[in-house]
Write a protein that binds this DNA or RNA. Structure first.
Length: 552
DNA sequence: ATAGGGTTAG
């Protein structure tokens, strides 16, 4: 079974915390004789050693004070609490919140036998899920003699955070089958997972279950539901929910504004912003991210500028992400110089996100010179960066330069992540990567696809080969345009659904130019609506045109 | 001890 790519894992590790075990021992040793172990200076004579350590760890966690944490760790060992399970779990949680995942992992490996009490085990699951040490979290969960709703929620939420939606759903099903009652926390995570999956049946199912369990829809669940229905292509249902729930929290508005934005309804998003102000809900920094990206994806340059300037009247100072949205807005619209000017005049240091937005603009504008400027600013190049640069050279007909990028990528051992698309049929998610051979019905799927390719050719469709060179490794050479993942998913949809019904596909990357053109033609010759949700927005193909107006 | 809405990229 294929797995969805994990996008944007939230692992925050500070460079100052990259200690190995020996270093850890040194820090501990240097602190254990110190008299200022506790940030609160609790005297041992007043309370017990154990209680003092508990207090210390609480304080360390609140202040994210690594030095104090290692100091406390040292003291724990010194006074014989080194293997105390409750303290260990607290310490692990402190190390994680300090961004020192390696210390947390090291520590758990030193525990010879795991017999954590309920709460300690829950702490450990949450901590290791946070740093994507899924196997450790799983082991802690599996070893528990008794679990409560928090244990289940931490596992489900952890899987969702790490992009493993199928496992999240599986464990949720297991929770239900063992007659454990889900609560609002459980639903928030499962709804988020369904949002990422993008399947309408899954969305309907979890919403129905939420109603059946009579769980009150607070602003968190409300935002999650709006987000889910938007991302599953049911913007109308999202709007209905928005109208019926309490809207006094900004996140509900943000979810709705972003929902409209991913559907390319920038003007509706802006109208909602005005209504929000009328209803006296203050926009926050995320509201503006939503509005600016809405403008960006629709090419509304002047409106984008207007809302960027409007931020100050709400006392919101633009952050990197707002500047990033502006770079994207201008770059996408072909105003490379203005985008570059924004970066140069930043009141803070540009991050990789900014440079990637700029690089992406260089790609759409086929500007290899500025693309080189951008790529040199990105310290650790990821596969996507190489692919973008290679694509820039290809579209500028600089084949030898493209070749050099691919060689460099190979030399550095970077593999291109393949695009994945999936489609929900009768409540089951079917996943495809480019040239996928793993589906049970592959023969029928390829037959449908080849038939479609013939028909689109007859219709005069010419493949856009400009980027074919982007296939980076030898093994992937056979991945040609005809078998891109979205085409396979579409073929499966056509194979399995009745004529005339709409087909909805979800993709983990941006849709490619060739596939986009092709989908338009297919929608026309089959008289069918095809909906593709890509990484940033929805495309609705009907009668040979797409709702994105070919601007994306 | 567990939950919501966010910018870039293939």
């Amino acid at each position: 079974m294929l797995r969805i790519a994990v996008n944007r894992l939230s692992s925050s590790s500070s460079s100052s915390c990259r200690l190995n075990h020996t270093a850890m021992a040194k820090v501990i040793a240097s602190n254990s004789n110190s008299t200022t172990i506790s940030p609160f200076h609790i005297s041992d004579s007043v309370i017990s050693d154990h209680q003092a350590l508990v207090h210390n760890l609480e304080a360390c966690k609140l202040s994210s004070n690594l030095r104090a944490a290692t100091g406390t760790h040292g003291r724990m060992i010194k006074i014989g609490y080194g293997m105390h399970q409750t303290l260990i779990s607290s310490l692990i949680s402190v190390y994680v919140s300090c961004g020192c995942s390696n210390l947390a992992s090291q520590l758990i490996k030193e525990i010879p036998c795991w017999d954590f009490d309920l709460i300690s085990a829950n702490v450990i699951i949450a901590a290791f899920m946070k740093i994507s040490e899924i196997d450790i979290a799983k082991k802690a969960f599996d070893d528990m003699p008794i679990r409560d709703v928090v244990s289940w929620n931490s596992m489900i939420g952890g899987f969702v955070k790490n992009g493993r939606f199928e496992e999240a759903l599986r464990i949720f099903q297991e929770m239900l089958s063992l007659n454990n009652e889900p609560d609002a926390f459980t639903f928030a995570s499962v709804i988020k997972g369904c949002a990422q999956l993008g399947g309408r049946d899954h969305a309907q199912w979890i919403h129905g279950l939420l109603i059946e369990k009579q769980i009150a829809i607070n602003y968190i669940l409300g935002s999650a539901l709006i987000d889910m229905y938007s991302k599953c292509g049911r913007i109308e249902t999202a709007k209905e929910i928005f109208e019926t729930i309490q809207r006094n929290d900004v996140s509900v508005w943000n979810a709705m504004i972003n929902g409209l934005a991913v559907h390319g309804l920038a003007l509706d998003a802006i109208a909602l912003f005005s209504r929000m102000v009328l209803e006296e809900v203050s926009p926050d920094c995320i509201t503006f991210v939503g509005i600016l990206t809405a403008c960006s994806h629709c090419g509304l340059i002047e409106l984008g500028r207007k809302y960027f300037d409007l931020m100050s009247s709400y006392a919101i100072r633009p952050q990197l992400e707002h500047y990033g949205a502006m770079v994207d807005l201008l770059g996408r619209a072909g105003r490379i110089d203005e985008a570059y000017a924004i970066i140069q005049e930043l009141p803070m240091e540009p991050d990789v996100v900014i440079w990637r937005a700029f690089l992406s603009a260089c790609r759409t504008q086929k500007n290899s010179h500025m693309g080189e400027v951008a790529i040199n600013k990105i310290e650790t190049l990821k596969s996507g960066d190489y692919v973008l640069l290679s694509n820039i050279y290809c579209s500028a007909n600089k084949w030898d330069s493209a070749e050099r990028v691919r060689d460099k990528m190979k030399k550095n051992g970077v593999r291109k992540n393949s695009g994945k698309s999936w489609i929900e049929m009768a409540g089951v998610i079917h996943r495809f990567k480019a040239g996928d051979q793993s589906h049970l019905e592959r023969e029928a799927i390829y037959k449908v696809l080849e038939g479609l390719i013939r028909r689109t050719k007859m219709e005069g469709f010419i493949p856009t080969k400009e980027l074919v060179l982007m296939d980076v490794s030898d093994e992937e050479k056979e991945e040609n345009l005809n078998y891109h993942s979205e085409k396979l998913a579409l073929a499966y949809g056509i194979l399995k659904s009745s004529p005339g019904t709409a087909i909805q596909i979800t993709k983990n990357l941006r849709t490619c130019l060739d596939c986009h053109c092709w989908m338009k033609v297919v929608s026309k010759i089959l008289y069918r609506v095809i909906v593709v949700r890509d990484r940033i927005r929805f495309h609705r193909f009907e009668g040979g045109v797409c709702t994105c107006g070919d601007y994306w």
